[in-house]
Design a binder for these strands. Structure first.
Lengths: 330, 330
DNA sequence: CTGAAAGCGCTTACAG
DNA sequence: CTGAAAGCGCTTACAG
């Protein structure tokens, strides 16, 4: 069952291919009677335009590449950011009539594949979701000249992005802990090649410094297991600590487990604040206080930035606000 | 900076377009010296074939649609299944040289869009991830005649799938609870339009029936909040229950919260078993016993089924085994 | 407002 | 093994 072409629609309707094309593309310069007869033929034949032929001549693809760039050591496969952001991005892109081509960039090979594909003109633009701080992809994509934006800031300053005010988010968390009377406040950082990890650490440091307190730092990588390990190390190094700020909720969840295993009560002995306010934060024991980052909104704003760019709009970065959600862990 | 075409490569190399085409497509019937000169020209010019032109003549697309069909009432945006399965599917498809076109089917409009797109011959095949039991999409896709497979069984028997042995998974959970000496074992079901929800319920029922016990059933919809509510209801209806089998881990997490709020100790007063063994299961308080479903493996198997189908292979459904992972909650 | 014709950049029989 | 030519299914000036 071969698909009908413009030509057979034209024959059926008794008009030229040009007219059918105009009707199908909704041009206004078509006589009503022609439109009607063409519409009928289209319906009867079940005509769907051949995208390849159309793209070949128009040079538009109506597709956008969504590339998720993972760190070499891999990520948590169930990372809530992936689901939330990819879903929100797809929904918004589809609403704008764009096809979503999802690409994972995890290895040098797959990175090369992404570059090829993008340089090959298969898409109108690129939305980057970089879970990784040191990769050459953002700069490489920017070099292709194709409209490219990033969810969160990358290591390539020329790529416009929608980010968070991470430092003030962290400050929110630390000030809250101080107000609760906590005196020895530790931090568990994200991977430090990531811009948002560094900003969250800076916000923590600056806030403590302002009150004359010292920082207590353990390194994590945004996974639950790294949060659990960092917490263990913090407890060893400074058994008297009475609060911890984890740079994301997944690590806070890991820290909570370590604290429970160590017999520390939360929040009585140690208060815990996370970052992101993922859905799971409301279901931990005790429920987690967290700095909310509006991931879905941020994702939508990133799409709008990209669509604007494709239309020749401005490339101004956008910063989303965040707020503290207080629950039982502090 | 216009991209170079076959024609300019041919001119540069001093050969015909046909020869360039053959070299680029790796045909073996090309003299080595021609191959070399063409390769050089390709490299120097940075030639990348125009996919639209190629598709137009070959009628292959080297793309696969991954359609995620959500229920009308929406889903948990951070559903770990989405991240795990979409990631695994993409990775596997990319390894096979297929482009991944991600499509969300959430409304009638987006469903129509998916059908159009698929019928429009933009892809070589379709991988369906249906989080929803009553939708017309599986049957509609099957009707297009395009190779279509589903992650988990759908309501359209003609769509081949890779599923789980849900009934025996549930039986594993219930037998384990019986062995632990539990006598009043409740179940929290998933949405009953979903095949796997019904199978898990059946497995629970059959196992209890075999030991002469009665079922205690509460309805959920696979979200945390529905698990929390179902647990509240179960506690009201049967305060003496001493175990609950939740049909997925998200609902088990919700149930855990309700039990804590109600002052029931887990597992001393009430034992809890989940299903799926998502990463979060190891981080609940107490850590959750769960029936592991090998989501990533299942995703990969589904991709292989699809690739086979595209090559004209068999359409036999595949059933993956599952096993019980015992932790602290039982 | 409508139609005939050229052209987008490839691949693929076909002849040589 | 190589090249000239036709053709894939559209859109888009251009003339009328």
């Amino acid at each position: 069952m071969k698909r009908p072409t413009l030509e057979v629609v034209a024959a059926r309707a008794g008009v030229s291919k040009s007219s059918v094309s105009r009707v199908v593309n909704g041009e206004s310069t078509v006589a009503p009677e022609i439109r009607d007869v063409v519409m009928r033929a289209v319906r009867e034949l079940g005509y769907v335009p051949n995208a390849a032929a159309r793209n070949l001549v128009t040079r538009r693809t109506d597709a956008v590449a969504v590339v998720v760039s993972d760190p070499p050591q891999g990520v948590v496969s169930d990372d809530p950011l992936f689901a939330t952001v990819v879903r929100a991005v797809s929904r918004e892109l589809e609403a704008a009539g764009k096809q979503v081509v999802l690409m994972l960039a995890e290895s040098d090979r797959s990175r090369a594949r992404v570059e090829q594909y993008v340089a090959g003109g298969h898409v109108d633009g690129v939305m980057l979701i970089a879970l990784h701080g040191t990769d050459p992809l953002p700069a490489a994509l920017a070099r292709t000249g194709l409209p490219t934006v990033s969810f969160n800031r990358t290591n390539a300053p020329e790529v416009p992005y929608v980010g968070l005010d991470n430092a003030s988010g962290a400050a929110l968390a630390v000030r809250h802990l101080l107000e609760r009377g906590r005196r020895r406040i530790a931090v568990i950082t994200g991977p430090l090649e990531l811009y948002e990890s560094r900003e969250r650490l800076d916000g923590y440091r600056a806030t403590l410094r302002d009150t004359g307190r010292r920082s207590i730092v353990a390194l994590g990588d945004f996974t639950r297991v790294s949060g659990a390990e960092a917490m263990r190390q913090l407890l060893d190094d400074d058994p008297a600590l009475d609060a911890v700020f984890a740079s994301n909720d997944l690590m806070a969840i890991g820290a909570l487990r370590t604290l429970r295993e160590a017999g520390r009560r939360v929040p009585e002995d140690v208060a815990v604040v996370g970052f992101d306010d993922i859905e799971a934060a409301a279901y931990t024991t005790p429920a987690l206080t967290s700095v909310r980052s509006p991931m879905a909104d941020q994702a939508r704003a990133t799409v709008r930035l990209l669509l604007g760019l494709i239309e020749g709009g401005p490339r101004e970065p956008v910063i989303m606000p965040n707020e503290l959600v207080v629950r039982e862990s502090t």
